[in-house]
């Protein structure tokens, strides 16, 4: 079980927190945001970190999931789980159709196309007000329940989101260490060599795009129920950028890097609140400084230093 020791430690930590600090604001309230962000960052890392395909529009799929749940449950009275499923199916279909033309693009062109996708979807949320409630959004989603148990308190949401987050992290770790994951890394490393090894690069890219969109969509549905409210603001271009930042901040290509990045970027605004007007300024500065001095990302830089240090001390002994 050495392969999963890091994961088990992380899972234990997540499980211990609400038991040790049952009514702590940071655990049961901020914790939920952290979990959603981790799910999104880890899913985005599958595409960006593993397969090397930048996406500046990940929030679109998150938003489509959230709005599907809100619209289908409130306007059409659908069962929340069915609504979540329908949203996921719709996002899968959409992302599949878009994946081929979008992922044919590279570098800045790919960045532009995914950015465009995110902005178009966001404008749709704002403008299609008969369906989406426009800028005010929609509130009053039905309570989600699991086998008759209603998920209606922060602590229950903690367990639900924590479970889905851990599942996502586990999936991501499993993929990294598999034929599928190596195919993704190969596409990242050299697309031509990957093709010569028999990898259908277009298909591999398309599949991971759909998979990561699917996770984002389910996260969106859960988010909508947890917040009991959806509005376009949560799914803007800025949020997509924030997700990319989480992934890069922690370290591209590392699952736990994405986890750490998501954690830091979710906590940072809470901490920076004390600086009031300086919040935005400091946030921007931190981002720049980390990227300039640790371009490989915080987690990866730290991990490399630890490995380096251990090698050296072993060599010296």
């Amino acid at each position: 079980m050495k392969r999963l020791s890091g994961f088990l430690l992380f899972a234990a930590l997540c499980a211990a927190l609400p038991i040790l600090f049952p009514d702590n604001y940071y655990v049961t309230v901020v914790g939920l945001t952290v979990f959603i962000n981790i799910i999104l960052a880890v899913s985005l890392n599958l595409l960006m970190g593993y397969a090397g395909q930048i996406s500046l529009g990940h929030a679109a799929f998150f938003g489509l999931g959230a709005y599907s749940s809100a619209i289908l449950t409130i306007r059409y009275g659908l069962n929340p789980w069915l609504a979540m499923l329908a949203g996921a199916a719709m996002v899968m279909a959409l992302s599949y159709i878009l994946s081929r033309p979008i992922l044919r693009l590279k570098g800045h062109y790919l960045a532009m196309a995914t950015l465009g996708l995110g902005i178009i979807v966001h404008i749709f949320f704002v403008q299609a007000d008969e369906l989406t409630g426009g800028p005010d959004g929609i509130s009053g989603l039905p309570v989600l329940s699991i086998m008759g148990l209603p998920i209606d308190s922060d602590i229950r949401w903690y367990w639900v989101l924590c479970s889905f987050m851990l599942l996502t992290v586990l999936f991501s770790l499993n993929i990294a260490d598999s034929r599928a994951g190596r195919a993704l890394s190969a596409v990242h490393g050299s697309e031509i060599a990957a093709q010569m090894m028999g990898i259908d690069t277009a298909k591999v890219k398309s599949h991971i795009f759909v998979f990561s969109a699917l996770i984002a969509s389910v996260a969106g549905s859960l988010f909508a129920h947890q917040q009991d409210f959806v509005s376009p603001e949560s799914f803007s271009f800025f949020f997509s950028i924030e997700l990319v930042t989480m992934v890069v901040l922690g370290g591209l290509g590392s699952t736990f890097g994405a986890v750490i990045g998501a954690f830091i970027l979710s906590i940072l605004p809470e901490v920076l609140i004390v600086f009031e007007d300086f919040e935005v300024l400091i946030f921007g500065a931190i981002l720049m400084v980390i990227m300039i001095f640790l371009p490989e990302g915080l987690f990866v830089a730290l991990k490399n230093r630890v490995i380096h240090f251990m090698r050296r001390s072993q060599g010296g002994a």
């Binding site: 993929i175 034929r179 190596r182 890394s185 090894m197 990898i199 599949h207 991971i208």
Partner: peptide, 21 residues
Amino acid sequence: ENVMVGCHLRSKSGLIASALR
């Protein structure tokens, strides 16, 4: 891992199977 990519054609696990291990 580089060489394991070379084995791509001689193996067949897909994305979902890999995620579920």
